[in-house]
Design a protein around this nucleic acid. Structure first.
Lengths: 388, 388
DNA sequence: AGGGATAAGTTCAGCAGCACAACAAACCCT
DNA sequence: AGGGTTTGTTGTGCTGCTGAACTTATCCCT
């Protein structure tokens, strides 16, 4: 580490402290949190404020003795990023600023299974540029664009998106036009969603995020960091084997979790008519439909087997149910928790906790935008010199 | 990060670069590897040499033009650490120096299943102090002691070692006498062994290390770092469910991998007589005993199911077979690789590689000592000021 | 054998960035 | 109003890195 990077490091440290603090901290709070002196923090905070990354709130005059502290928070309306998402049944674009405020958004509902990547990504690109323009017209500077995709990525290529039936797609080329904010960050849908969950102020910074859909993705969040694995292909929970004697999955293996708890499998097993959608399952459960209840219970057991393995292997004991799993949380919970208690070796000392996601609608979209914004927070010096 | 820590950080960076380099680097090599200037490296290296952490080799006069480089390597015979291990069938102690040389060692073979922790740890403590004394008599300064245990640890307590049938043991108290080198580092056997594998110069720095024994432990090594999980309980591969309809395991769940591929299960399934030991199984396999082959093949399939889940979840694609698995590698390989190819979603793009461990005998013992030595490498300033 | 080329390691002046302490500001409490 | 308390700012000093020049040691070519 060189001397110049010391400054960059501290600038980033302070920026991250302000961005992730549960409540707006004063300069003095930041100093004690980071171990830097008030003098250093003060100098660097001034720079962040001038650069439009941090803003001062009105001093809180209430309470204790002493000069009132000036709370610091992420700036609003100065720096933003565009999030894009292609998923099984929609395209979407959203612009966030550093404070997490949504500045513009658009969604196109559409069944994209088996679609042609070219026109779909071209439409998404156009949608993204429109949305980005409305935001930049409001005075926002864009730091980049994130694109969430439900599949395996390598560098700039989507190798495989099983449920879209896309292979070897290069999104950057197909989006068309310039990328808003310059750089394009590709990422897995579940991992981006987990990032949004983390930012949404979940109390803990270590959890397993499960993204239910036709496929089942997952993300490992450990100490506030998202673990991507060697190639960025971690979290393929849907293809964990829960019974070697089970049905053959589209992937070629037998007894994959997806064949029990993927949304398509779940609807079929619940005996719902062809063309039913996840909300119909929730309705059937609310009406205590026996077929639906049986399907969800067997899905919960299968999920428990797979997630039990997950926890035994990575030792992260909070489980967040996201996407199509979220509305099923209370139906899944009893069997899921029972299975985890039995199967997780350490459950006696750290009982796995199950809860629904709190990240809001389309978390992967938010996560994609945040991933682009993270570039600014991680290296404020680069952004500040670029902004100048 | 404060200014003083910049120096500490760079000192540690240089120390780690020298320690982990595949071939002894010159000061100039270190400078390019770390991005520091030659001037800074030179100054800090002098300090490391004076402190006895690094040594100069004889200049290599061979080859290229220019002043010959002075190779730098970990010092021998100056700083060491004591590794201790309690396992199912032995106690052991070993002293290593920074270069990885074994300076003293002792082993006591003994069946410790169901033993009383007090006398066992007391004996180990005495053994450790003896071994440590022979090393310090040779002029070594000890940096600490590591203790490898086959179970779940929390802080200084061994919560559960299923195969020893130990619960709630506090080793620091039971070892008796002063801890050689001061601080005691407790750690899981599989994770310490993985550390030794990493140090043994495996070509890759990302792999899953599987430690076969009566139980089956594992460790996740990613980018040269060992992933411990939230509480340090990651890698409990033995209790991953490979068939919900399988036998009931000692842990209470059904179909755990351990009931297929744990060494006790394997010997029983191979039809070997009561009291047989793992080498007997290798002999039976070499003699093409059909029962032994069948048992190993079904173990390989079960292992493939569990490790396939592991790879799908954490995306680390090299699998190192250690401990009792190592001599079985070539018998396990065909079925294991077939299973992984089918079950790992990304196997087409990153085919999982299976290989035997190269870390040598009792790797956890080496890993325990290295863990204590890592304290010196990670924070050389603290060691240097302590040494003064 | 001698001179040029090349690369490693060292020296030293200069500078960037943090620490420390003193100070000013703003509020509370009595 | 005055003392106490905490926040934020200011300026001096010091630590530790940088960059360039310099020394050292070897190779290679003529």
């Amino acid at each position: 580490m060189r001397q110049e990077t010391l400054r960059e490091h501290n600038l980033s440290l302070i920026a991250r402290t302000v961005m992730t603090a549960p409540t707006p901290p004063s300069r003095a709070d930041v100093a004690t949190a980071t171990g830097l002196t008030r003098a250093t923090v003060s100098r660097l905070v001034t720079e962040l404020i001038d650069g439009g990354l941090v803003a001062e709130d009105a001093p809180l005059t209430a309470g204790a003795a002493g000069r009132p502290a000036i709370p610091l928070r992420p700036a609003t309306g100065t720096v933003g990023a565009l999030g894009l998402e292609v998923n099984i049944d929609y395209l979407a674009a959203r612009v966030l600023d550093l404070s997490g405020r949504v500045l513009a958004e658009a969604t196109r509902e559409r069944d994209l299974r088996g679609s042609d990547p070219g026109p779909v990504l071209s439409e998404l690109g156009t949608l993204g540029i429109e949305i980005a323009d409305t935001a930049t017209a409001g005075g926002i500077r864009l730091a980049g664009t994130g694109l969430a995709l439900p599949g395996l990525l390598r560098d700039d290529v989507l190798l495989l998106a099983p449920n879209l039936a896309w292979t070897a797609v290069t999104p950057a080329a197909l989006l068309g036009g310039p990328i808003p904010g310059g750089r394009l960050h590709l990422g897995n849908e579940a991992r981006f969603a987990a990032g949004a969950e983390l930012a949404a102020g979940s109390a803990t910074d270590s959890f397993l995020y499960l993204s239910g859909s036709v496929g089942i993705g997952a993300a490992i969040v450990h100490g506030g960091e998202i673990f991507a694995g060697e190639h960025g292909w971690s979290g393929e929970l849907g293809h964990v084997c829960v019974d070697p004697a089970g049905d053959t999955c589209r992937c070629g293996a037998t007894g994959c979790l997806e064949t029990y708890a993927g949304s398509a499998a779940l609807l079929r097993r619940a005996g719902l008519p062809e063309g039913a959608r996840p909300p119909d399952l929730v309705d059937a459960l609310a009406a205590a439909d026996p077929g639906a209840l049986a399907a969800v219970h067997s899905a919960a057991r299968a999920l428990g087997t797979a997630v039990g393995a997950f926890i035994n292997l990575v030792d992260v004991s909070e489980v967040v149910l996201g996407n199509s799993f979220a509305p099923l949380t209370e139906y899944l919970r009893p069997e899921l928790e029972r299975e985890l208690t039995v199967r997780v070796l350490a459950s006696r000392w750290a009982p796995p906790q199950v809860r629904a996601s709190v990240a809001g609608d389309r978390p992967a979209l938010t996560g994609a935008a945040r991933a682009a914004l993270a570039g600014v927070t991680e290296d404020p010096s680069a952004w500040l010199s670029r902004a100048r």
